[in-house]
Design a protein around this nucleic acid. Sequence first.
RNA 1: GGAGGGGUGGCAGAGUGGUCGAAUGCGCGUGCUUGGAAAGCACGUAUAGCCGCAAGGCUAUCGGGGGUUCGAAUCCCCCCCCCUCCGCCA
Length: 437
Amino acid sequence: MLFIPSGEGVRQWFSMLDPKLLREAPETVRAAIAKKHLAVDLTAVLALDTAWRAQLGEVEALRARQKAANNGMVALQKGSPEFLAKVMEMKGVSAQAKTAEEALKTLEEKWHAALLSLPNIPHATVPDGKTPEQNVVHATHGATDAASPHAIPHWEIGGFSNLIDFARGAKVTGAGFPFLIGEGARLVRALLQFFLDENVKAGYTEVSPPIFVNAASATATGQLPDKEGQMYVTADQLYAVPTAEVPLTNFFRDEILEEDALPVCRCAYTPCFRREAGSYGKDVRGLNRVHQFDKVELLKWVHPSASYDELEKLRADAERLLRKLELPYRVLLMCGGDLGFAQSKKYDLEVWAAGQKRWLEVSSCSNFESFQARRAQIRFRNKESGKPELVHTLNGSGLAVPRVLAALLENNLQADGRVKIPSALVPYFGKEYLNFN
RNA sequence: GGAGGGGUGGCAGAGUGGUCGAAUGCGCGUGCUUGGAAAGCACGUAUAGCCGCAAGGCUAUCGGGGGUUCGAAUCCCCCCCCCUCCGCCA
């Protein structure tokens, strides 16, 4: 069912793809669907498009007739026989138009819903593949084999619950809402401050956004209608943000930027809230997956011609944070099947957690091209033509705290039970070692 | 939370049922004028959809949605936002 928020915003297009692209190059869309390994009936979408346009023509013809009649009636004496005859005639046309408009509305809803099912087109450089195993390891940085011999999962470290208390969080709120205490809380604060400072140095403007958004905003970035169950909702239909991407991207919703203002680069820290409905299995323990966590997000609004260069810069900015923290990590280039519905190209940054002996995703850097911009109607005015065009949007974490924290604890655990703080973080944390008691 | 006043084009601001996509002013653009500029004059200046090879045509949009009517910026209902005053509050 198509979700149509009431009130301002997100009223023009619910489509994610340009309908013209669908008409003029359906095979491009078909190829995109194939590369993403999605099951979408393009023929049905095209049929709806044709039907919608036919109906639109009919409605517009009737309206034109009404309009012409109205203009003529102005000259007539009100109440004269000619006037009354015209009224009678136009009553019929009016009824006809009403019926035609209702039919159009029904068709339009179906058509929009169908367009919603079409994914963004993957970039040519996105590798083929269906499963996460087919993602390409783009780069690996730091050693993973020389991990400390006593590395253990962070939740097994002696005194862990002195710093991060899941049990009391569960009592007070529910599972997945841990308390951070003492040096645990301090380390998180140090990480956030470090991330923000580094990002500002890299040219991003710091923003502190609202952490609740309305339905129109959640729709524009794609959380609604499909992922409603992933968000916490308040009694008055405000959604707790699952990521700062949502309020940040919507900042310029329904606006036209000056071309010279591009690229706009911003970063924001927010707590993030995710119900993680339907998740199960391996991530139930520790910090790998929680309902509330802290994250700094990077956002860019760029000129379409620059978006792939900007994606590389964005990835480099996120990588720099991991390098300064001296954490081993790898960069994955997502294959078509694991790319996600809205992305054209995506890199995942995964940090090595020595104790769990596995990679943890800490950042996902994506180019959405005009996909989100169309939904949110974020444009820039082309200086040459004077016409508005859709911007390209990109985002990525810089970075998500809990998994970075997990890796930090596991990789830097010393034989004496303390954790060595990376030198870049020492000025923020205030000392060189963290204690668990 | 209570009472009242408002939301019209890039901005200001007319318009209370009919040729209104919308007067006027400012701003902006082009041209004329000028040695050059200013002033002045002329013309132009929203967004989107559909049709069309094109020229162009048609339609929609006055905070959002619905209703009344042959016809709505204008009348009715609901919602959102802003302002003023009162209350409450970190």
